[in-house]
């Protein structure tokens, strides 16, 4: 089953806007972990907004789990496709953790007892059970984003899209979010779309997609993508530092790399120099 499917989608933010998506085809299979890369303004965030029907395409078709994202179905699509946004302060509605996590579930008319269970499940999934009655304003950035993820999980979505959700966090917060994402994928079997410009975060994904000017220009495993360094540079991206080091060592006559893993790279260097 395809969790997300774009069929020749056209979109623009109005006549005089330079940005345009043309004839975009993009699918995410159920259970897949896809990373979407691209510089600022490449269309990554538009992709997320089209996928759950916040934006409507000018042409073509967007669907989630076979349900077309249009008209009366929008509600169903939004239930299936959860989106976590960038700014941790601008996506929580309530002041208290459990009230905010409940918000989505309340919107879709979930019975009261069931909401209680879902809050419990969602907070556990993001490792924030102890904070159920805490005041959101007092949490750290990473914790706030975990609450935002919990708020989406309480709707029991089939796919979760993280739209640069780590961009405003410190390294500790970023690690927290990446651990949660990994656990959600492994334990809950959730489909994940990770939109990011931290190249390192994409290494965890099954598949990486590079966007440029509203088009998908590269696709493949993260290893494949990062081995095409010249292409990445044309799309205004930079190599992950580890890939850059591997490449330079190779140019210097060593034969290392391709795995993008610190320990393996050290092992290979050790083999080459001894």
């Amino acid at each position: 089953m395809q969790a997300i499917a774009f069929e020749s989608v056209d979109f623009s933010y109005g006549e005089d806007s330079a940005f345009r998506i043309k004839n975009l085809n993009f699918t995410v299979e159920e259970g897949e972990f896809v990373a979407v890369l691209g510089h600022n303004g490449s269309g990554k965030s538009t992709l997320a907004r089209l996928a759950n029907g916040i934006l409507t395409p000018d042409g073509g078709k967007v669907s989630a789990f076979g349900i077309p994202a249009e008209g009366k179905n929008l509600y169903e699509v939004r239930k299936k496709v959860g989106v976590v946004f960038q700014n941790p302060d601008n996506q929580t509605v309530a002041s208290i953790v459990e009230d905010d996590v409940a918000f989505g579930a309340e919107n879709v008319g979930t019975p009261r007892e069931e909401i209680g269970k879902r809050i419990e499940f969602a907070l556990k999934a993001v490792g924030m059970e102890e904070y159920r009655h805490a005041t959101i304003a007092r949490l750290s950035g990473g914790q706030k984003q975990r609450i935002a993820i919990a708020g989406v999980l309480a709707l029991k979505p089939g796919v979760i899209i993280l739209d640069e959700s780590t961009a405003m966090l410190d390294p500790r917060g970023r690690r927290e979010i990446m651990e949660v994402v990994k656990r959600l994928k492994e334990e809950e079997g959730l489909t994940v779309v990770l939109i990011t410009h931290f190249m390192e975060e994409a290494l965890m994904a099954d598949r990486a997609v590079v966007m440029n000017r509203g088009e998908i220009v590269m696709q493949g495993t993260p290893q494949e993508i990062f081995s095409r360094s010249e292409d990445l540079i044309t799309y205004n991206l930079v190599l992950p530092r580890i890939r850059y080091i591997e490449q330079r060592l190779n140019e210097g006559g060593m034969s290392v790399g391709g795995t993008l893993d610190t320990q393996i790279l050290a092992e290979e260097i050790a083999r080459c120099v001894s």
Binding site: H39, N40, A167, M168, H197, F198, M199, N236, L237, V238
Partner: peptide
């Protein structure tokens, strides 16, 4: 450099 993409 917070919030900028890698090139930025």
């Amino acid at each position: 450099a917070a919030g900028l993409d890698p090139l930025g």
